[in-house]
């Protein structure tokens, strides 16, 4: 396991929207679903929570939200200890955990109104306006009066998002929010998350869509078999050693460029026609262009290739397809 390069470690707790220490859950079956997790979600971050099926993401989120009691360890939400601070903190948190859950025989709107009615801190006078706005926001307004049981998979998921957005929130905890959504819906959720994050809402989102995560997340954390393997901003997680640089030059300069890259300290230099690839290591890319120009070598193109989130993910969690347990 790689040491966790976390920019936030040591940050005071109140800068973190979610913070867990040694969070562990052993179910009565004896299974340790979450094992000593130190989650750190900075305020204002969009934190992508990744991990293979059964790696313990949902269980971690349940503990953070006070639904499941940790076997050991602690969780703080918006700076206050859970589950004790739930009544104070949870009204500022919108959540979608393990799929939507609504009464099948009530309409989408009636379901949202019930959730709002039981909220001790919600203003009944603005209920109608807020439920309508939330439904509108997820594109469900045309189906607001349909019974939930008649909703399609994606419509159900959208209603779950609407419930999380019933009120302005400081933190959104979304467990696979794009599950079952069509491409437009997925894109809208991405836009929505950006918009919310821009307005200052912290987002903790678990997902299997690494492409989506790569596009919106400022931080990622990767779980595997109950452990949090790494967390931090994605570009910091990809160790510099794995970043490659691709230099395109001319036939006349290929040999010179190859020697120059090796001299600069780049390793694993490979030549294919006029294209050279090498591992960047700790060398700053701008140094290469400067050195090439300084040595009078032609520089047609220079590209830095950081490993994709997917390759990072597979490298961390393994190629195997079977779930862990």
């Amino acid at each position: 396991m790689r040491s966790v390069p976390s920019t936030t470690s040591g940050a005071p707790g109140h800068d973190l929207a979610v913070r867990t220490r040694g969070l562990t859950k052993r179910f009565r079956s004896g299974q340790v679903a979450v094992d000593g997790v130190d989650l750190e979600v900075p305020r204002g971050a969009v934190y992508g929570f990744l991990g293979p099926n059964g790696s313990g993401k949902t269980t971690t989120l349940r503990m953070v939200l006070g639904l499941v009691a940790p076997t050991s360890g602690t969780a703080t939400l918006l700076g206050e200890p859970m589950p004790g601070a739930g009544p104070r903190v949870l009204p500022r948190v919108g959540a979608l955990v393990e799929g939507p859950g609504f009464h099948p025989y009530l309409s989408g709107r009636a379901n949202l109104e019930r959730l709002d009615a039981v909220d001790a801190t919600a203003d009944p006078r603005t209920r109608e306006r807020r439920t309508a706005a939330a439904l509108d926001r997820v594109g469900l307004a045309p189906a607001a009066r349909k019974p939930f049981r008649q909703y399609s998979l994606g419509m159900k998921q959208r209603l779950g998002l609407a419930a999380a957005l019933l009120r302005p929130r400081d933190l959104l905890v979304l467990d696979e929010p794009t599950n079952g959504l069509d491409p437009q819906g997925t894109r809208e959720v991405r836009h929505l998350l950006r918009e919310l994050a821009d307005a200052g809402t912290t987002v903790l989102v678990s997902s299997h869509l690494l492409g989506e995560v790569e596009q919106v997340c400022s931080h990622v954390g990767v779980m595997s078999r109950g452990r949090l393997l790494v967390q931090g901003p994605p570009h910091e997680l990809a160790a510099d050693a794995e970043t490659t640089v691709v230099v395109t030059t001319t036939v006349a300069c290929v040999d010179g460029a190859g020697r120059l890259l090796a001299d600069l300290g780049l390793t694993d230099v490979r030549v294919e026609g006029t294209v050279l690839t090498a591992r960047l290591g700790l060398v700053a890319p701008e140094k290469i262009s400067a050195a090439m120009v300084g040595a009078g070598l032609d520089l047609v193109g220079l590209e830095v290739r950081r490993p994709s989130l997917e390759s990072l993910f597979v490298e961390l969690t393994g190629e195997g397809f079977d779930v862990a347990r």
């Binding site: 349940r62 939200l65 006070g66 639904l67 739930g86 009544p87 949870l90 009204p91 948190v93 959540a95 955990v97 393990e98 799929g99 939507p100 859950g101 609504f102 009464h103 099948p104 959730l115 039981v118 909220d119 001790a120 419930a163």
Partner: peptide
């Protein structure tokens, strides 16, 4: 069973 319990508790309803 409907999954509404967790959302009631997350509202939160004590």
């Amino acid at each position: 069973q409907a999954g509404t319990l967790r959302y009631l508790l997350l509202v939160p309803v004590p």
